[in-house]
């Protein structure tokens, strides 16, 4: 009886915590998948993985560090599901971007940014995502296992790549941001 009450409490706490941070998880899903179906699959997989490891999370690290670690590790391995189902996804199967004329400038900018991040290597994608989520270099280092120096160097390289990618797509930040 007591165990069942504890289990229910644990589940309720977990659900409430996830409900609060679901935006982070949705953003991770959108950076590591290409279609809505894949995104749904990954969302489900991350939730289950978080729930599976939640009882072993005992506050040795911050909740957000644990959350990012599990979610990103699951996202990196989720690639296996796609490899199995469809190793060489054709361009037709990738979710088409909405036409720029139907979007506001900032929406268009976000789409281009998301698209450019998706083109990065998997670990770079994780590093820039964490930085965009305003994580400190120390937190990024804890989540990825890179040293703070390596995080800093990698970010310089990634920002440069993003700048070039956005410029090649005709995006200039001044038009939309600020």
């Amino acid at each position: 009886m007591k165990d069942s009450r504890q289990a229910t409490e644990l589940r309720d706490t977990f659900v409430a915590s996830i409900h609060q941070v679901q935006g982070i998880l949705h953003r991770i899903c959108s950076l590591y998948t290409w279609t809505p179906e894949e995104r749904q699959d990954l969302w489900q997989e991350i939730l289950l993985q978080l729930w599976r490891t939640y009882p072993t999370f005992r506050g040795h690290s911050q909740f957000s560090t644990w959350l990012y670690r599990v979610a990103l590790n699951t996202a990196l391995m989720h690639r296996r599901s796609r490899m199995r189902r469809n190793p060489t996804m054709s361009i037709d199967e990738i979710e088409p971007p909405a036409a720029p004329e139907n979007m506001s400038g900032s929406e268009h900018g976000v789409r281009l940014l998301t698209g450019s991040i998706r083109e990065l290597e998997q670990l770079d994608r994780a590093v820039i995502l964490l930085r965009l989520e305003e994580k400190s270099y120390q937190e990024i280092a804890e989540i990825t296992g890179l040293s703070e120096g390596a995080v800093s160097l990698r970010l310089v390289r990634i920002r440069e790549k993003l700048r070039k990618a956005l410029a090649s797509k005709g995006y200039s930040g001044e038009n939309y941001v600020g």
């Binding site: 589940r11 679901q22 949705h26 959108s30 965009l132 305003e134 410029a167 930040g173 941001v177």
Partner: peptide, 27 residues
């Protein structure tokens, strides 16, 4: 567009509207 602050500002505009799920769905 190379400035990190600009990228973060742009990223903040990424909304998850339409994808937000309630606690019952999560459970």
């Amino acid at each position: 567009m190379s400035d990190e602050h600009d990228l973060q500002a742009l990223w903040k505009m990424e909304t998850t509207d339409g994808r937000t799920v309630d606690a019952v769905d999560i459970a």
